[in-house]
Design a protein around this nucleic acid. Structure first.
Lengths: 327, 327
DNA sequence: TTGTAGGCGTTATCAA
DNA sequence: TTGATAACGCCTACAA
């Protein structure tokens, strides 16, 4: 990697002049500009971001903290974030927190040590001091936070929709699978569903679970039908759990959607390829990622940002785990 | 963020001394060490990695270049890489290349600008000059490369296994779905399968496809049964395609695995939750990610590294899209 | 229009 | 055992 000094030498000017042309700042004669540009090309020079970062006390790096990239919902968020950031010449440092405060703090710390200019986090502890004390902007992604910048989907409405669709399609003994109580979004979905079912005067049961993980999804699915064997409509806490529920239902010889209808949440890419394909509540994850990136960039680059809380609408995606509604 | 100067002042020593204690280098009196440590704690000081990086001309950053984190196979690799790197205090800058040379070069460039000390790449162009010209170590992940450090699974053997298992379970009109010709691993799988089928004297057909994407998987599945309606055994190019094939088979009223058996490749987490669950060739993605991280760290920190090419064994995971073999 | 020089936060060399 | 100080590569007053 060539340095600015070498370019200066090659072009027969001072480093200041080189700096001026590459940053397009200050005056520089057309001729010398050309000479410098030639030298830059010649030496294949690109500025050392580290030196820049040291001087300016800020970088083009943004920290992205996700619970677990392995969970099928997050890659889409990550991709959205990354794509948008990339377009604006920012780069992302990735961290998997596993919802652990300790890991989160550690990452935030090293983000800071690397002069990141902002962080996008999908955390359960948005009001933890590790965030509130931060001097750089933070955007909470997939988390509802009122007084801090955030991008999220309307989980509550999603829950309502799921409930509505199920009832409309004739389920009468509905079970809501409630996700981890600590996860705000999971609770939103649950509350929305419960609220709507009550409003409709439908009876329902609740199965409490405490994680979204692959491995445990199967166990819950079994538990579900053990406790509520005659349930005819399941509102799953997310698509993964819905996959497991479908599998268990089939194993028990139930017909889906005839005997039991299932609705997931998230609309991960594979739910369309499931057999039968999964009816679910769609969250525009990729767009949400992009929006979060947009927001953090705005917060970094602009003095004032109007819309600091961006809510995305969710939508019911009708596929094959729910019955056709009679018109 | 406190600086070393502030710590020095607080401890009543010079920055050199502070540097010595935090780096545990050179002599420093026990008493002053304590004073410094107190100051460090007091001010909550952590060294600025950017300044360090500038001086040392290297960072604790490693670039990770993946085709598309959204493809269910990659998050596991990424997680493995990230976990291991994190344990050794390295951080990862993530990039999605979409297999585009242009994007790859751009990322490599900015990685360099940020003083990354190594890159882990899952590229199709390992011998492109952007890699060969690099002065920092590169590990190719999920790509077979003979003369460069790499971590990969034995795709060829995977293909053979898939073929063997299918024949053993009675499929006689097998179709191999061949992935993108440009993708070495896809070709390995294909060749392994073809080779084994020939060896077994089994007849087979080939359906050529040119990407692994979600959206097109369905189209290929349709194409597959249009061209080979009486096929009774499918070796899919990966699990996603297998998902699509299963879906199409069911749609056509075929019974799986009675009428047609299906074998996937990768063993993405959701294939276990599919209904019927997907028989597939397992690649230890997470471990491969970790191994790649181990390898890059070794290449960075050690003068000589013995095992520069690490091959992982694959294994057949028997689930429900293949018949039980008669003993 | 251009160049000099100081400083960003660290580390390492060299004297003291 | 400790402290000045140069240097890493860049940017920006300020001077010329």
């Amino acid at each position: 990697m060539a340095t600015i000094k070498q370019v200066a030498q090659a072009a027969g000017v001072s480093v200041a002049t080189v700096s001026r042309v590459i940053n397009e700042s200050g005056y520089v004669h057309e001729d010398t500009r050309r000479r410098v540009e030639d030298a830059v090309r010649e030496l294949n020079y690109t500025p050392n971001e580290v030196a820049r970062s040291l001087y300016k006390r800020k970088s083009k790096l943004i920290g992205l903290l996700l619970p677990d990239i392995t969970n099928p919902y997050f890659p889409q968020l990550a991709r959205g974030v990354e794509d948008r950031l990339q377009e604006q010449d920012y780069r992302v440092i990735l961290g998997n927190s596993d919802e652990s405060r300790e890991k989160e703090t550690e990452y935030i710390q090293t983000f800071l040590q690397n002069n990141v200019v902002g962080v996008i986090s999908s955390t359960h502890a948005p009001d933890h001091e590790m965030y509130t004390g931060l001097k750089i902007p933070v955007v909470f992604l997939d988390r509802t936070v009122n007084d801090s910048p955030s991008v999220y989907a309307d989980g509550r409405e999603g829950g309502r929709q799921a409930a509505r669709e199920l009832v409309q399609r004739g389920s009468a003994r509905i079970v809501i699978i409630q996700g981890p109580a600590a996860v705000r979004t999971a609770m939103d979905r649950y509350e929305g569903a419960a609220e709507q079912l009550e409003k409709l005067g439908a009876s329902y049961q609740v199965l409490k679970t405490d994680s979204f993980s692959f491995t445990e999804a199967e166990a819950w699915a079994q538990e579900l039908f053990r406790q509520y064997p005659d349930s005819d409509g399941i509102i799953a806490s997310n698509d993964i759990v819905a996959f497991a529920v479908l599998q268990e239902a089939v194993r028990l010889g139930k017909k889906v959607p005839q005997d039991v209808q299932i609705i997931g949440f998230d609309d991960i890419p594979l739910s369309r390829l499931l057999t039968p394909s999964l009816s679910t509540i769609h969250q525009p994850a990729y767009e949400m990622g992009r929006a979060a990136a947009d927001l953090i960039i705005a917060l970094i680059e602009e003095a004032y940002v109007e819309r600091r809380n961006i809510q995305f609408a969710v939508s019911f995606i009708e596929r094959q785990t729910t019955r056709k509604v009679e018109l």
